[in-house]
Amino acid sequence: MNQMNLVEEKQLKKDLPPFRVGDTVNVHVLIREGDKTRVQVFKGHVISKRGSGMSSTFTVRKNSFGVGVERIFPMHSKMIKKIELVKRGRVRKGKLYYLRKLKGKAAKVKEIR
């Protein structure tokens, strides 16, 4: 596996914030419209992190005007300009899929003080 690292290392991001499942993050996503590019911020809870190295991804869930929206991002994608850690959440599970069934106040993640 040593030799594989030589290939992957060049593409891995080294400046990722140490965010965990349950945290609230701002993901700055590059969006291409024709020949123009702009940055859009996707803010929500991290409900899952999986994989290792180049193939790792994370899922962010947010509530957009009453509709739940989830996006899965490759951790080291070039389309992500920045990930900001907004709030730390206190959770007891590795995957927060149970949030999908909850609404309103019940779907809140407690913040770490």
């Binding site: 596996m1 030799q3 594989m4 290939v7 992957e8 593409q11 590059l30 291409r32 190295g53 180049m54 193939s55 490759p74 080291h76 994608s77 070039k78 389309m79």
Partner: peptide, 21 residues
């Protein structure tokens, strides 16, 4: 054959690749 991984192309899409020595 060394192994497989994925890399990102210029436009940001994921490309599955095999590494060969």
């Amino acid at each position: 054959k060394v192994g497989m991984t994925q890399i990102f192309s210029e436009d940001g899409s994921v490309v599955p690749v095999t590494v060969i020595k």
